[in-house]
């Protein structure tokens, strides 16, 4: 048969059926290599050291992905007329006034709260204790949510276990640090455990996440515990990782199942990093 008359393909002279399949030994070796990587990560958290540096390498890719949106937004800004901007300004002024009035109300509530719980400590905090971080990427697996934030390595007190906060409360903590990026384990992560204290009943507990957009649960709560529905939970500061007095979650359901040794308490988290871009990180003086 002539080369040109090949039945399989006229584009290639090589028959597609002639291509040998992959060698099973090579596949097996690769699988073993992957298993070793996974096992070392599970048992020794080996990737925590290199992960954020890997993110630094991937930084240009993330920036390229963001470029079209950035250009589009800038073009929109450029073409929006002065009139539009004036209307927006007016609307924002109105919004600002409303927020100010709400804020005054919140101050009143906060004053009462301060007498009841440990918020006093957080109010006393110096604003210099915080630095701003920007969200870079949120992992696509909502069951194991990890957020990557852009960070300035020269910030004083920057390091592992810095708490990440939003205006609504605790968001998570830094688990891996790189040159320009850091990985934040969110409090919604099932691996995350955060000591909390309830606002009115003043009971201590450990809160575990179940994934983004899901209810968390309080661990090992005795049946005699007197938690109330709708009660807010604040970080207690025990363990020394998270600062005390920051809002974390709200109790949604309390169930007393006869077959269970403990109470089944589910809570909703007060903040979600999905539609928020900027966060505050709390400096750790021991890292300075």
């Amino acid at each position: 048969m002539l080369r040109k008359e090949h039945k399989v393909s006229h584009i290639s002279s090589e028959a597609i059926f002639a291509i040998p399949t992959m060698k099973p030994t090579k596949v097996l070796l690769s699988l073993i290599f992957c298993f070793l990587l996974i096992l070392s990560d599970i048992n020794y958290k080996s990737s925590d050291i290199v992960r954020a540096y890997g993110k630094d390498i991937l930084n240009p890719i993330i920036y390229i992905a963001k470029t079209p949106v950035f250009i589009f937004e800038n073009l929109m800004d450029f073409f929006s007329s002065r009139k539009d901007l004036q209307v927006t300004l007016l609307a924002l002024k109105e919004e600002n006034l409303k927020l100010k009035s709400i804020n005054t109300l919140l101050n009143e509530i906060s004053y009462e709260n301060r007498r009841l719980n440990s918020l006093t400590e957080s109010i006393k905090e110096n604003t210099n204790n915080y630095y701003l971080v920007k969200k870079q990427y949120l992992a696509a697996n909502d069951l194991k949510p990890v957020m990557t934030v852009n960070i300035n390595r020269n910030e004083k007190g920057y390091g592992k276990n810095n708490s990440i906060l939003s205006e609504k409360g605790v968001v998570g903590r830094i688990v891996s640090v790189g040159f320009y990026n850091a990985e934040v384990m969110l409090i919604q992560d099932p691996r995350s455990l955060i000591p909390v204290i309830s606002s009115t009943s003043r009971l201590h507990a450990i809160l575990q996440g179940s994934g983004l957009g899901r209810l968390g649960n309080l661990k090992n709560i005795k049946k005699s515990a007197n938690y109330k529905l709708g009660e807010e939970l604040y970080s207690s500061g025990l363990g020394g990782v998270f600062p005390s007095g920051y809002p974390v979650a709200k109790i949604e359901t309390i169930e007393d199942n006869p077959g269970n040794e403990f109470l089944d308490i589910q809570v909703s988290f007060l903040q979600s990093p999905i539609n928020q871009d900027y966060f505050l990180a709390l400096r750790d003086p021991s890292n300075e």
Binding site: V27, F33, C34, A139, V146
Partner: peptide, 29 residues
């Protein structure tokens, strides 16, 4: 199939692992 193989899959798997912050080697596998 003769141009891509295990190495390509492994390399991009690890890159996706880094991007998605999953266990290192999981996407590779």
């Amino acid at each position: 199939p003769d141009r891509v193989g295990i190495t390509t899959a492994l390399l991009f798997g690890v890159l996706v692992d880094l991007l998605q912050s999953s266990i290192l080697g999981l996407h590779g596998l």
